[in-house]
Computed example of a mutant assay.
Amino acid sequence: MHEIGVMMEVVKTVENFAKQNGVTQIQTLVLQIGELSSVIPRYIEACFPAAADGTILQDTKLEIEILPGNALCCECSKVFNIMENKSKCPYCDCRDWEMLSGKEFNIKEIVAC
Rank of each mutant, 00 (worst) to 15 (best):
K103Y: 07
E84T: 04
E35F: 03
I44S: 04
I66D: 00
S38V: 10
P49D: 04
V39D: 11
S77A: 14
P90F: 07
I107L: 11
E75N: 15
M1N: 10
I40V: 14
G102P: 10
V10K: 06
G69H: 07
T24R: 13
T28E: 15
I40M: 13
V14R: 03
V30G: 00
V14I: 13
L72H: 07
Q20S: 13
K61H: 08
E3M: 12
C94T: 15
K86Y: 00
L36R: 00
K78A: 04
A46I: 01
Q20C: 01
C76S: 12
A52Q: 04
V39H: 09
D59L: 07
K108M: 07
H2A: 05
I33G: 05
L72P: 10
M7V: 11
K12I: 02
C92H: 01
A52D: 05
I26W: 04
T55F: 00
E65V: 12
K61G: 00
D59V: 03
N16V: 02
K78N: 10
Y91C: 02
T24L: 11
V79E: 13
N21L: 11
N81A: 10
D96P: 00
M83P: 07
N85P: 05
K86Q: 10
I33A: 12
S38K: 13
A71R: 05
E45H: 04
I110Y: 06
S38F: 03
L57D: 09
C74T: 15
T60Q: 03
S77P: 03
M7A: 05
T13K: 02
I33Y: 12
S77N: 14
V10M: 06
F17R: 01
I66L: 13
R42T: 08
E65G: 03
I107H: 06
M99I: 14
V79T: 09
N21K: 03
E84D: 11
M7S: 07
E45K: 15
I56F: 06
E35H: 08
